[in-house]
Design a protein around this nucleic acid. Structure first.
Lengths: 209, 209, 209, 209
DNA sequence: TATGAATGAGACTTCATTCAT
DNA sequence: GATGAATGAAGTCTCATTCAT
């Protein structure tokens, strides 16, 4: 069974995407294309077959040889790690974009919604995250300061604007994000369930009460 | 990879606990003892090693031969199913007990708390539930009418007492239960995080707003 | 996989049928009944499931406990041996009966027919005989003098009556018996195929040519 | 216990020998070498240990890893099937060669002899054929038209030349082939027994009588 | 550099046999 | 004497990973 060796370094927004192995010169164009294909194929296969997906199946989906996968990701673990990092980066961009928004409250709640929507789109990833001994919350809380900082800013600004209660702190916010992410992903919340469930949580986050 | 054949029949509050395989006469005393030992050992090993736990490891932990596991649970799947059923039964008893409580609101919020506390205590189970293609929410929503009815009653009574908002329906309640369960389990929420996170959700469930 | 330890002693027309284990006092009535039931069940199951049949399946078919089988047949091998002995004894009675017949030629060809008819009736046994490292021919040629003598007499008398060629000897006769038995059993020769195939062999056995 | 799924397609004179699994490009040189080594080793081990032979034993005999066997033959069943096909192909070549012979009677009887000689050389195969739920007769009768046609031609030509009785039809001929093959193989008929037994059958096939 | 053939540890499961009940 | 629960060796097959081509 797969198990990440170093949870700590996840979500470190690694810059490995454009790099060979751990560092070194930039990848040749075709190599970079292969790397991306493998990453996409891995998500596809994982979504389809769950955690039992084999490296061979991923290679086939990607249309490359087994050896090619191992050139880019020396270990199955490394591949899964890369998927997670990939994922986190996309989430981070969304958070960053929302930081620019005018309505701080809408930005904050928008981010929560984004999380759930994203999760809904990516069935199967949770298995990987799960078995990797890591999940969004764990990942986030221990993880890249970039991500933490983005969320923190979103929260602070929303509180300052009065849209979110003052006593909401990062730990429970991350816990909630984690919970929503995992459940939405695994159970494939449809749009209505998503809306109704988030409505409850949003209300819980509002001030006054 | 492990996958349950029949999610439908989970949580059916089976009475299999004291019975041989699916039916037949009651197990001999020593057989019943072994069955229980295997179940306990399985939870232990699953918590320790995650979903990758091998049947052999479980046998060793239980101090029985491999064959003994297979006598009681013809398949790995059957064993995992039994664990889940076991679990659901305990949760159901708690829900049932709370139905007797005087304060309907406290009973309702108490059940949510129970879920989270129980989850916290059982690290690793989520992997099983997860990869079983089933989770508390899925299990509950499709599952035993007994469990559904208990939760429904808890909710209705709490709403009638005015402690919970009228527009809270079962789908989102189950979704929330699922989310809290999984996250609390995987991330091992400590008592404080538990309290603070639940506080948000509880507020979201309250009326007025 | 099953393998007989001592092919030599097969077909020795053992008298074990009415005896306990290797010798000793006669079995109690119920014990003898059980022994017979096991033997019948074993043939049934072997015919149904082939060589892969398990001792447990045989016990179930016989309606006795596993332990009971082992009381009568200390080993799977012993059980299979008993089946073969059983079989040979029946064949022997038929041969003996035919020895009394007036028409020696008809008796001889009748025995060949009996062999094939018997084989046709007992699908699956060949697997056992086969994997026992023994078959009718091998068994017969090495086996009980009783059987050999019966066949020898059948042959000699038929030759003396002029119905069978003088140069037909026991080795090739046994070889032919073996061949017909195995093929008829495995392929379940129907009555017509049986007749047409035997016609060829019979003609080959006739004198003159 | 081993059991072929599709007896029908046996003896189809597949061209799989030089091919990867079912289709695809030709195997790499080393792969083809390994495939052949496995096939040879399998026959050897089967002859030595009977049907109980394990895949591991075959791998050892072949001097390859277990996985290598499974790459070429995804299933034990596939391996055994391949052996049978292999075998049938060789028999077919012999039959084809005999079709060119001038003396049609000699060709016909020669083929019967070939069958028995071949069988004698390959102890143990019968177990495989047998438990495969298939044997020469069954295989042949249901099997490749190529093989059937070759035998049919041999027969017809021999009948036209007057060497074989007119009323001998394919069904009983195949039944006899099957019987001789199995018995000769299992009992390892020596040259003399072979000759004496075949003499009887040959006489039975001759006309006049 | 890319490919995929080879490897072998290890997983699940079966089943003959023993022995406590 | 009968039963069937327990045992564990052994079997088939999968799959991450290595390395020759």
């Amino acid at each position: 069974m797969f198990r990440l060796k170093d949870t700590e370094q996840l979500f470190r927004m690694s810059t490995s995407q454009g790099k060979a192995l751990s560092e070194g010169r930039p990848l040749r164009a075709d190599a970079r294309r292969n790397r991306a294909r493998v990453l996409v194929a891995a998500e596809t296969v994982l979504a389809r077959e769950g955690l039992g997906a084999s490296m061979r199946a991923i290679a086939q989906e990607a249309g490359v040889g087994l050896g090619t996968i191992y050139r880019h990701f020396p270990t199955q673990e490394d591949l899964y790690e890369a998927i997670i990092v990939d994922r986190a980066q996309r989430l981070l961009s969304q958070a960053a974009a929302l930081l620019e928004a005018e309505d701080a409250g809408a930005a904050f709640f928008g981010f929560l919604t984004d999380i759930v929507v994203d999760a809904t789109r990516r069935k199967g990833m949770a298995d990987v995250l799960a078995d990797a001994g890591i999940d969004i919350k764990a990942g986030m809380s221990e993880a890249s300061s970039a991500m933490r900082e983005a969320i923190q800013s979103l929260l602070t600004r929303a509180q300052q604007s009065g849209a979110v209660r003052e006593d909401l702190l990062m730990p429970e916010l991350l816990a909630l994000l984690s919970a929503l992410y995992m459940a939405a992903e695994r159970n494939q919340w449809n749009v209505e369930l998503r809306a109704r469930t988030l409505a409850i949580v949003f209300d819980g986050c509002r001030p006054h009460h």
